[in-house]
Structure formats: C-alpha cells, structure tokens
Design a protein around this nucleic acid. Structure first.
Lengths: 239, 239
DNA sequence: CGAGGTCTTGAAGACGATCAACAAACGTGG
DNA sequence: CCACGTTTGTTGATCGTCTTCAAGACCTCG
C-alpha cells in the first residue's frame, strides 16, 4: 500500500527490514476523497498524518478577498501533513485536487516509531525538509522569475517528482488539475496562466491537452525555467 | 551563549536539564561576520549547522539575470541552516545581512544528540517546521496580497519574532537591513518597496528612520496585512 | 575627502490583472 | 440517454500595479 512512500525514502537512504515492517504496519485503512473535498481544515488539530496514495492534493490558504493561494502540491507517495505531528494546529487547509486515496497514521504511532527508530525519524524529518526546499524554490520562482519561466519551473518540478514515483514515463504524465488551481499555486490569474501555457505550446516545449502533459523539449524547458533539481535531493545520502 | 535559542525552545516545550546541558555543551566557539559576508555558499556541503547569536542573516538565491531572492530572514536565536544536518548540499547561500555573531554545531554531534534525546530531536525538527510554515506564509503574501499588504505582513512577522526573543519592546525594534535587501525578500524592486514604506508611514501605521522601526498602529497594520500569528506556533505544546 | 552604498523622486513602459463573453466538456438528474 | 447547469478553457479589450531607467541628495566609512 505504501510502496510509493517506501520507494521514495529508499531512493535517498535505504530502510532496514525492521523499520520498513514497523512503518508499513502503522498505517490505517484507506480512505477515499473526491476532487474538492477538504481533507483537513485550517485551524483544526488532526490527531494523525495523511499519506497520499494516488491523486493530487494541495495546501490551500484563503485570503480576505476570496483569493486562494496553494502553497504546495502533493503527489502519490507524499505525506500531505506530516508536520501536523509536531505542529498541532493547521495553518492551512488540505484539499483534494483530484479524486484521491489516502491512508493515515496516528501521531502516537509516529511518536513511538520515531523514538524506537532514530534513523526513521531522521528520514521523516528529511522529507519535511524537502517540502521546505520546494517552498523556497517556489518563492524564488514567484519573486524573481517571469510568469512564463515560473510556469515552466513548476512543470519541470512536477515532471521530476512524478518520475521519482514512477508516474511519468518518457517525460509524459497525467496532471489532473485545472488551470484555475494551477494559477492559484503560481500566484497568477487563470487567464494569464492560460496564456503562458499557450506560449509554452507555441514554443513547442510541450503539449498539453486535457490532463495529459507531454514534454517535447526538456532541455528548452529547463533552460527557460532555470530549473536545477538539486533542491529535490534525489541523490543517495546517509542519514 | 545560546540562551535565545533555549528560550525560544522553552517557550514551546520546556527542555529537561540533561537536554539543556548537552545541547549547550555541543556548540563551537563564536565566529563573527561582517554585513554581506557569505556564511555558506550555495552548492557547498557544510559539516555543521549555524546558530545565529545576534544580527541578521538571510537565505539567498541568485537567478540568471542577477536578481536575488531572499527566501528567509533569520534573527538572533534562529538556526540558519539546521536543515543542512540532513540535506547535505545547500540549495541556497546564507549571507550576513548585518554584522553578526554565530556559533556552530557539528553534524555528528547533532546526530548523537538527536539519537540520545528523541524529545530534543522532535524539538529541533519542530523548529525546521516553523521555517517551512513561514515559507508558506511568504508564498501566500507574495502570491495573493498587494505589495503594500505584503510589506505590512513582513513587518508584523518580524515584530512578533523579535518580541519572542526579547528584541522588540513595545512594538519598536532595530532592523539592520537595507530596503534593497528587504525588497529582495519581498520579490519587489527597491523603488517600489520604498514607496510602500512611505505609504505605511503616511498612513501613520509606523515610523521608520534609519534602522529604527516603531509600530504606531499595530491593529491597523495587522488588519492591512491580514496577519494571523498562528503559523509562528507561539503556543505551548508537548512534543 | 572621496567613494560607494542608500534613500528618494520622477517619468515612462510593461507585465499581469480585471472584466466580459463564449464554446466546449463534464457531471448530474430527469 | 438527453437536457441542463456548472466547471473549464479560451479570447479580446482595457486597466493598473509594479518595473525600469535615470538622477540627485544624503550618509557612512575607509
């Protein structure tokens, strides 16, 4: 069930048999959500953390004028709110962007696991640090890149992240997200994002129809986006 | 020496005597930097993490056109690169914004401490989660607030953070940072930031001359910034 | 004192937002 | 299975926030 998570962790630093078994056994049954469902409400204090098994979810913050900012997108194999293990009250909501399935792990179990397996604790800590690194990269893209480059950057990031969990083959993948929501992630309007996507298409960097994205010119996209995957920390390390 | 850090941790969840002593003893001698010095280079692999004792530092990423984005500002008592304990290669630089003093702790010591004291490990993990929460809040402000509100938001955040380490009394404090660097943190140009600051002044929300900032109308500023300090997690918790 | 950094102001321009409208796709219930 | 309402993608026109470029005053410090 949690193979994608295990694969993602293994990629960085292999888990021991005991860790793997203990972690696998700690999760609750699968739950299903429809697109637009709210998994976790801002201000709530969930007693468990949620692992995304498939589909797409996002962290959403709503501002006074009704505008929404999506501060993170989560793919299969990502914890969507591992931080709630230590940060008790949610400072944002978690919403399902596509239909999706999740499983949860109660915080007392996480506490127990991380105490018994310091190495696993470091690995989980590490995965929240990647989250933070992605946040920083989004800040750079939002603050200092053009809307076009920023859009390209997000596509590059999603391509690589989907590849690492086996969901993008030959630089093509399903992206079940509307342009409106994508615009909310980029801090743009959907109108402008639409024009940026058309520009990417007309430059023959990618095709994108419906939910299917196909990268035609990866190097060109990387160049435009100033994309450097270092921040995703795909290298093997030793924690 | 590391009182500000200890106070900040204690505020959330009190440290035990043993933890406190072990942590205090683990740090290296003090080092001093001048404004604009680079503490840690992007791409480097530091073997230790740095704790800021006083002054101001920032995480800086430079883009192709020479523009800079500051993705975080660190105050006295903050770890500036605790994440390098687990994320080996730095995806950004750390630069001194003002003259400052730091102390460091070697990663093997962190590893030892976090293994011996799971509670301390959680507390350090927690502090990196606050970093991420701040990143998210910056994303929201950058993506969905006006330049004026965004500027006000950063001022609110800095006020509260400085207060928690005793560096802001009655909503007034020293902020040894140039408008150019502040603009780099906000993703604005210094010209525009200057006009936003003047607007804040003319609305009698604050005074700001040289490095001295004094909040005149905290409620007004909070209202303008849509500032909600929940994300800073100042409440007492139990990790 | 000179040099460089910083703050400030003005004018012009561009990038992205806003407003409006419509077609296509989708989901749902009749 | 079709009819309907809703969401989504797309296009055009206009507007405004923020950028760019330029210049001058001030200040700090070596």
């Amino acid at each position: 069930m949690i193979e994608r998570l295990l694969a993602k962790l293994d990629l960085r630093d292999p888990l021991g048999q005991e860790e793997r078994a203990a972690l696998s056994a700690a999760f609750d049954p699968v739950a299903t959500f429809r697109a637009r469902d709210v998994l976790t409400e801002q201000g709530s204090q969930p007693g468990k953390s949620t692992l995304l098994l498939n589909g797409l979810t996002g962290r959403v913050t709503t501002v006074r004028d009704g505008g929404q900012q999506i501060t993170a997108l989560h793919l299969a194999g990502d914890f969507v709110d591992l931080h709630s293990f230590l940060i008790k009250v949610m400072d944002h909501s978690i919403v399902a962007i596509s239909d999706c399935q999740v499983t949860t792990i109660r915080h007392e179990r996480l506490r127990d696991l991380t105490t018994r397996f310091p190495h696993l604790a470091r690995l989980l800590w590490f995965s929240t640090l990647i989250d933070a690194a992605i946040h920083r990269q989004w800040l750079v893209a939002m603050g200092r890149l053009s809307a076009l480059s920023q859009t390209a950057h997000l596509i590059c990031e999603l391509t690589v992240r989907l590849e690492t969990v086996g969901l993008a083959l030959r630089k093509a993948f399903e992206l079940p997200i509307s342009q409106l929501q994508l615009a909310d992630a980029l801090g743009l309007t959907s109108v402008h994002l639409n024009r940026m996507i058309q520009e990417l298409r007309s430059r023959r960097l990618l095709t994108w129809s419906g939910q299917r994205v196909e990268i035609l010119d990866w190097d060109g996209l990387v160049q435009l986006a100033e994309f450097d995957p270092t921040y995703l920390q795909l290298e093997r390390i030793s924690l």
